[in-house]
Simulated assay, not measured.
Amino acid sequence: MKRRDIVLASAGAALAGIPGLGQAQQDFPKPGSTIKYVVPFAPGGLTDIMARTVAQKLTEAWKVSVIVENKAGGNAQIGAEQVAKSTPDGSSILAITLTHAANVALFPNAPYSLTKDLRPVALLAGSPMLVVVPVNSPIKDFKDLIAVSKTRQLNAGSSGNGTPPHLTMALFNDLNKTQMTHIPYRGGAPSMTDLIGGQLDVIFSNFPESIAHVKGGKLRAIALCSLSRHPAVPDVPTAFEAGMPGLFVENWTAAMIQAKTPDAIVEKYSREMIKIMYSADVEERAKQQGFRVTQKGSDEFGRFLKNEIERWNRIIKTAKITAT
């Protein structure tokens, strides 16, 4: 039996043992109903693409209309607030990322609570951060970066304050006891342009934002912030291999729902989403987009999310990171 079949069979057996759960799950969703899959980012990004893939599969499986609704803005808070304040009947679900875990520390006065107003459904996939330098940089590998950053001030770009590239740079500084100069941009594309042009020394980048430039010979990838190498760049070592085992950062994507949503509905979403992510076509599509399927059900994802919030809270406070 394949690993995915074992996971799904075990999940099904566990759920079957909960009194009344089976009937409650059968009542949701009602035929002909509409479900909003809220993506708190602009269309076209990886989170949006993954949500649309899952939404289509849910539509096919449940014979209802699952519509992706993009609610960008407020550092991903606008869409999150919408679902946090929605009716707890399963009709709205939220796509979240590492950004939301960091937002807990970055926005202490947010109009909703990630941990109180929303509850975990499932972790779907992760995309490792890729450390890149200009192709003509004297920094040839990750050990060079570690050494050079201790001898002179390096400029590290990011797609904005508090974004995953910024947080990864801050984690590097924390582990290496150095202080790179952070240069925030409005998005990943302009930061890549300046890195290629030599105005920046390094970017701890979102994988999809830099991989094309690496493949095109404009940037050199020197490390992957992951536990294992990536098939798209098999010759690039992990940070663990290159001398910094603590530099593990994946920009993950997951789903949450209004906190008072009944357990039966949450578990139905969780089980179906895990099944979707393990389908061969979705796994392959995720791989092509730079993702690795990293499924976790509601309880396991809840523990993971708690750890991520605590981890980035510490880094944000240590580095004195603010949202602006």
Rank of each mutant, 00 (worst) to 15 (best):
182 H>W: 06
12 G>P: 03
206 N>D: 15
284 E>L: 10
169 M>S: 07
40 P>S: 06
145 L>H: 04
297 G>A: 15
192 M>F: 02
68 V>I: 04
284 E>S: 08
217 G>R: 05
320 K>Y: 03
141 D>K: 08
274 I>V: 14
285 R>E: 12
16 A>P: 01
185 Y>C: 07
316 I>Q: 09
297 G>L: 05
198 G>C: 08
39 V>D: 02
34 T>F: 11
305 L>W: 06
122 A>L: 10
87 T>R: 14
260 K>W: 00
217 G>N: 02
314 R>G: 03
15 L>E: 14
279 S>H: 04
40 P>N: 02
279 S>T: 09
287 K>Y: 09
20 G>F: 01
187 G>N: 11
73 G>S: 08
270 S>W: 02
186 R>Q: 13
269 Y>D: 01
300 E>L: 15
221 A>Q: 01
44 G>R: 03
226 S>N: 13
260 K>E: 14
189 A>P: 03
256 M>Q: 11
145 L>A: 03
201 D>T: 11
256 M>H: 11
73 G>E: 05
154 L>T: 06
147 A>L: 05
220 R>A: 00
95 A>C: 12
277 M>N: 04
143 K>T: 10
216 G>P: 00
318 T>H: 15
260 K>Q: 04
240 F>V: 14
197 G>C: 05
34 T>H: 07
94 L>E: 01
290 G>C: 02
243 G>M: 10
10 S>H: 13
84 A>W: 02
1 M>Q: 13
50 M>L: 15
144 D>V: 02
212 A>V: 07
238 T>F: 03
211 I>E: 09
184 P>H: 12
130 L>H: 04
